[in-house]
Computed example of a mutant assay.
Amino acid sequence: MAEYAHPEVLVDTAWVADHLNDPQVRLVESNEDILLYNQGHIPGAVKIDWISDLNDPVVRDYLDKERFEQLLAAKGISNDTTVVFYGDKNNWWATYAFWVFKLFGHKDARILNGGRAKWIAEGRELTRDVPSYPQGSYSAPERDDATIRAFRDEVKEHIKKNDVALVDVRSPQEYSGERTHMPEYPQEGTLRGGHIPTAVSIPWAQAVKEDSTFKSPEDLRELYGSKGVTSDKDVIAYCRIGERSSHTWFVLTYLLGYPQVRNYDGSWTEWGNGVGLPIEKTYKG
Rank of each mutant, 00 (worst) to 15 (best):
K102A: 01
A237K: 02
K102H: 03
K107S: 15
S212P: 02
K156C: 12
G266L: 02
G257T: 06
S245M: 05
Y62T: 11
N38I: 12
D168W: 03
L220N: 04
V100C: 07
R152I: 15
R244Q: 10
K102W: 01
I48Q: 08
Y258H: 15
E188D: 12
V155N: 00
D18F: 04
N113L: 04
N91W: 03
R110E: 08
R60S: 14
D80T: 07
P217D: 09
I48E: 08
L10F: 09
P183S: 13
I196H: 02
E125M: 14
K156T: 14
W268F: 13
N91L: 03
L35W: 13
E66F: 02
D219I: 02
A165I: 08
H195R: 09
N91C: 10
S139N: 13
T230N: 13
Q70Y: 10
D168K: 00
L71K: 10
L223K: 07
K209Y: 03
W271T: 00
E188C: 00
A165S: 12
H247I: 00
G274K: 14
C239A: 03
N162Y: 11
R67Y: 14
E32V: 13
R116W: 11
E280F: 08
L36E: 08
S267C: 04
P172N: 11
F104V: 00
